[in-house]
Amino acid sequence: MIRTASTIRTASLGTFTLYKRRLAVATKTASGIAGTMTLPVLWVLIIAPALASALGGFNPSIDYFTYVVVAQVALIVPFTSMFSGINVIVDKEFGILREFLVAPVFRASIPLANALAVLTIALVQVALIVGLGTARGAEFNTSPTGVLWFLAAVALLSLTTYAVAEFLALAVGRQEAFGPLIPAVGVTPWFLAGSLFPLNVLPPGVEQVALASPWTHALAVMRYGLMENTDPGLANIWHMNSELLMAALSLGVLMLMTLGALTLAVWVFNRKTMA
């Protein structure tokens, strides 16, 4: 019992220390803070209204501006995760990772702390998007439960994509090789996830690929949380009648993906950092 308590204490203290350090790195420079905030602000204030105005929407029951504001959440969260993969490479090649490897913390604490720091940054960005969106006239139809569904999807998408970023960063090992992967892996799936148009207009085959993507499930659950009973995203995935059941299924899929991705990331981390 004492041993278990001690293990939990060691794990949590180590993770928390590394988490705070990662956040400090992210917020160390004004350019770093501005960089994480520019796209959400630009999107909500300029791009989303422009898209809504130009395209008008595909379903009269859906406010297209709100639709693409939520889509922005599913864009910025993975993008932030992928971008933070660079920090993994910098820490390994030029920085402090070796110090962490000889510290009395569990090795898994290192990638997990990074993932939690990235999630924190993502939540700040999400708050900015939702806040600005509301101010700009987004019609969120939600409830406290809906917000929880939304936040759960945000968190799982952030953790999954961070795990993918960590895996890729350790696998390629160099900033020059990792840079091109950021848009390729961090943004491309977003276009297929029902971000700007519903899944059912995708070509056959591509739609099936989209169904295997965490972006697709996360975005559908996010809209279920913030646009209750208006968005057909979940129905396009599961073709069922119960919104709650479909949301639970998508969240379950996301959880499995998150668990798998984090396990893979920790495994790769151990392999790449232990000779």
Binding site: R21, A24, V25, K28, F94, G95, I96, R98, E99
Partner: peptide, 9 residues
């Protein structure tokens, strides 16, 4: 360590 291992930020 043999190489410098400091948090450069």
């Amino acid at each position: 360590f043999q190489e410098s291992v400091l948090d450069n930020d």
